[in-house]
Amino acid sequence: MLPWKRLFRPLAAALLPAAALAAFTPLAPLTAQPAAAAPAAGAAAGGWNDYSCKPSAAHPRPVVLVHGTFANSVDNWLVLAPYLAGRGYCVYSFDYGRLPGVPALGGLGPVDGSAGQLAAFVDKVLAATGAAKADVVGHSQGGMMPRYYLKFLGGAQKVNALVGIAPSNHGTTLSGLAALLPYFPGAGDLLNTATPGVADQMAGSDFLNRLNAGGDTVPGVHYTVIATRYDEVVTPYRSQFLTGPDVHNVVLQDLCAADPSEHVAIGTVDLVAAHEVANALDPAHAVPTTC
């Protein structure tokens, strides 16, 4: 083996997961906590994950929030969850895709397995609220993964609308990181082994080919995608868009040209995006989104 190859193999092993982690980590600090503690923390922080909540006539469907890769059910939603709860929605979040030995970070497991966890959680929320259907809002992987649930796990019968904030619908190059994989022998295998939830989101992955075969959408579900031109994680940003008969693709800067939010901010702190989520959940009473 050439000397440079001996040097690059361990370098790739060290840098690729770290680069993915840096790209997907939310702005809010992650704290080590058991998975069961997250719903209680969320409820205490902003009035969500309240299983005594009953949907109103104005907002008849509970809202299920699905966090992104390397995130969790609290940190991803410290702004949006109380924003929606304060507007009268019953709001719920959960942790998915946890790997052994990684207590505070989710979205790392295989995406199809995570979709099964979403299916179980939606059933739990519907049983608690008595609602016939839920609305789902997700950030990054959390905006793409529910499509597997809708398409393959019967979710279309239980979900009215899917709102994806910077979703990885057609994969990502991780701003060119994916293009480096062929130059680092074993790097692709490392991603699949260590963080299959990341590998599944790489453009051209077997998972995404299966998910998108035959069309992006399923009948009966309303789809909204909210993207930012400054996304540096799900790249190119237009790969987030969906094609179908009931799809509304939105670019944040078309609503507010001065909005600087990138991939993390649009899903965690951006109130323009939050307002557009509210419009998507209740289009009959939508208010034009401005700066």
Rank of each mutant, 00 (worst) to 15 (best):
D254S: 13
H248W: 07
P245L: 12
V225N: 10
E232F: 09
T243N: 14
S239K: 12
I226Q: 00
R229P: 00
S239M: 06
H248N: 14
C256D: 15
T224L: 05
V225K: 08
D254C: 04
D231M: 10
V234H: 03
L255A: 02
T243I: 12
Y237M: 06
Q253W: 03
N249F: 06
D254V: 00
S239F: 10
R238Q: 10
P245E: 11
T235I: 05
R238D: 02
L255E: 03
L255G: 05
Q240H: 08
Y223K: 10
V225D: 03
C256Q: 08
H248V: 00
L252Y: 05
N249T: 09
F241E: 05
P236F: 02
V251W: 05
V250F: 05
Y223I: 11
Y223T: 12
Q253V: 15
T235R: 07
V233C: 10
S239C: 02
E232A: 13
Y223H: 10
I226W: 01
Y230G: 10
P236N: 04
V233Q: 04
T228W: 00
C256M: 06
D246N: 15
R229K: 15
N249A: 07
F241M: 11
P236Q: 03
T228I: 14
A227F: 01
T228D: 01
P236E: 03
L255W: 06
V250Q: 10
V251N: 08
Q253K: 07
Y223W: 09
V251S: 06
V247W: 03
V250Y: 05
Y223R: 11
Q253M: 05
V247T: 06
E232T: 11
V233G: 05
I226D: 00
G244R: 06
D254R: 09
Q240T: 10
D254P: 09
D246R: 13
Y230W: 13
P236S: 05
Y223G: 08
L255M: 12
A257E: 12
V234L: 06
T224S: 14
L242K: 10
L255R: 14
R238G: 01
H248L: 06
T228R: 02
R238P: 00
Q240V: 00
T243R: 12
C256N: 11
T235P: 02
D254N: 15
P245W: 10
T224E: 07
